[in-house]
């Protein structure tokens, strides 16, 4: 029924991409530079370079197309599928354009930036293919907001359960409900975990105190521990959800700004080439 973006339209854009790559390689093999080694300055070099630059502009246009919601023409899915495959082809086109000549200059900077952008895109693709299903399984039909609401309900229930268990327990439970965090900085979000989780700490402390509690409080402790365990479980799911969302989003923070950096470097590369000319 449903197929991934890679299989989309029976690999139509993969076929396009392979054709482009094949033609480029073929030309590179048969092309004999008038003098010297293959490089960006030969006839083929210019052809591949122009094509590559136009391809970069077209690939970046995706960001605009995606936001043109009322636009006709091909659906966004077509655009994304083509964006992925033709973006990968750029590796072949641009590398052949360099004639494998690299150095510490603005030309290789543009090449390097391009490769980073492509790699970040590959990571994004990987995340897009892998994460959605993990996310659905982890959510078990709940939304993040529902999880938060349930966590907050459990907080209230914990505080009520703690009322009959003495001041120390009350202090621990209150602290847990005030200091528990979901998400945070990027590292915390990506880890999907909180090693200093206030609720886990409270849970450990309550378990410890339960061992020394009078039998009359056993029932109360059991109830509280159950609630805390349920909350811990929900917290870890919520944090995992945050992690998945972060994985789906984070690569764009590299992919998009670096694309613009690449655009700058590309302009510099082209302008400087014409100065040498």
């Amino acid at each position: 029924m449903h197929q991934s973006i890679l299989v989309f339209r029976n690999f139509r854009y993969l076929k396009w991409a392979l054709s482009v790559a094949a033609v480029s390689i073929l030309l590179y093999v048969v092309h004999e530079p008038e003098y010297g080694l293959p490089n960006g300055g030969t006839l083929l070099g210019y052809v591949l370079g122009t094509f590559g630059a136009l391809l970069i502009l077209w690939l970046m246009w995706f960001g605009i197309r995606k936001r043109r919601y009322g636009a006709g023409g091909a659906p966004v899915e077509d655009w994304l599928s083509a964006h992925i495959y033709l973006g990968l082809t750029l590796i072949v086109v641009a590398t052949l354009h360099t004639g494998f000549q690299f150095g510490w200059n603005v030309h290789t900077l543009a090449y390097g930036l391009m490769m980073i952008v492509i790699l970040s895109g590959v990571f994004g693709l990987f995340a897009y293919l892998r994460v959605p299903e993990l996310m659905t399984n982890n959510r078990r039909g709940m939304t993040l907001v529902q999880m938060m609401r349930e966590i907050s309900d459990l907080d209230t229930a914990c505080r009520e359960a703690a009322l009959s268990l003495g001041d120390e327990i009350n202090r621990i439970v209150l602290k847990a409900s005030q200091n528990t965090r979901i998400g945070g900085n990027i590292r915390r979000q990506l880890s999907g975990d909180d090693p200093e989780c206030a609720t886990s700490e409270a849970s450990r402390a309550v378990r410890h105190l339960a061992d020394h509690a009078p039998p009359s409080q056993a029932e109360g402790f059991r109830a509280l521990m159950g609630l805390l365990a349920r909350k811990e479980e929900l917290l870890s799911r919520a944090r995992r959800d945050v992690r998945y969302k972060a994985l789906l989003d984070i690569w764009l923070f590299f992919h998009v700004p670096l694309s613009f950096a690449l655009l700058g470097a590309l302009i510099a590369h082209i302008v400087s080439v014409f100065f040498y000319w």
Partner: peptide, 18 residues
């Protein structure tokens, strides 16, 4: 009234919406 059909489906980059 939109050319090409439902915008939600047309805007889905991965074909998840149908």
């Amino acid at each position: 009234d939109v050319l090409g059909g439902p915008a939600c489906v047309r805007a889905c980059p991965t074909g998840a919406a149908l």
